[in-house]
């Protein structure tokens, strides 16, 4: 069983989260995650002259989900949009004094929420089109968002992805897993969930292989 022990900073942000709420007529907003999984974050932005004047979030999630939402909004508030875009989940984890490995994925969700809200702002207010060509290197970047809960590192860093192919809308992935690995099912579902959100991906074939 995974032991979940939070730092005092996490508990403090869970107890008194900063920037909770909604912004009416937000310049950019996004909701990521899904309540079915027990995790969801919404981020709202007010932007003036390229600076994040105000930022708020709502969370339907666990304690670390709320704490990461709080810290990420703190880190972005009053900062330039470009700076906010450069924030990574590792920065958020560091600011919180660490997260248990099984909870690292929460910080990714919070950063994802922030980036998606900025993207929404750029599309709505600046008319910037975000159309990326989907190729294998793009997919690898997406797969970096999937965390192996046992270690708290992403599956690319963990070298769990042994094979990746993208052709005519079909993604084929082989993941190295021992049959007894308790996170096997979770990780495979999460990979599928991340890839399903990509527009050009029509078919996903994720296989667990023992190496």
């Amino acid at each position: 069983m995974a032991v979940i022990k939070y730092t005092d900073t996490v508990i403090e942000h869970f107890k008194n989260p900063r920037n909770v709420g909604e912004i009416e007529n937000a310049d950019g907003s996004a909701t990521v995650g899904s309540p079915a999984c027990g995790d969801q974050v919404s981020v709202f932005l007010k932007i003036e002259d390229g600076t994040i004047d105000d930022i708020k979030f709502l969370s339907y999630g666990c304690a670390s989900n709320i704490a990461t939402g709080s810290i990420v909004t703190e880190m972005a508030k009053g900062k330039k949009v470009d700076y906010a875009k450069s924030l990574s989940w590792k920065d958020a984890v560091e600011q919180l004094g660490g997260l248990p490995p099984v909870k690292v994925h929460c910080s990714i969700l919070a950063i994802d929420g922030l980036r998606a809200a900025i993207k929404d702002y750029e599309e709505k207010k600046l008319g910037i089109k975000h159309e990326k060509t989907i190729d294998e290197s793009f997919l690898i970047e997406e797969l970096k968002k999937v965390i192996y809960p046992k270690t708290g590192k992403n599956i690319i860093e963990e070298k769990l992805v042994k094979y990746l192919k993208f052709e005519e809308g079909k993604v084929e992935i082989e993941i190295s897993f021992e049959e007894t690995d308790q996170f096997r099912q979770n990780v495979m579902e999460e990979i599928r969930e991340h890839l399903e959100e990509i527009k050009d991906v029509k078919e996903i074939d994720v296989r667990a292989v023992e190496y």
């Binding site: 079915a36 995790d39 809960p149 579902e189």
Partner: peptide, 8 residues
């Protein structure tokens, strides 16, 4: 206890 965000 949620251990990964796709933990259905």
């Amino acid at each position: 206890a949620c251990q990964s965000h796709a933990a259905k």
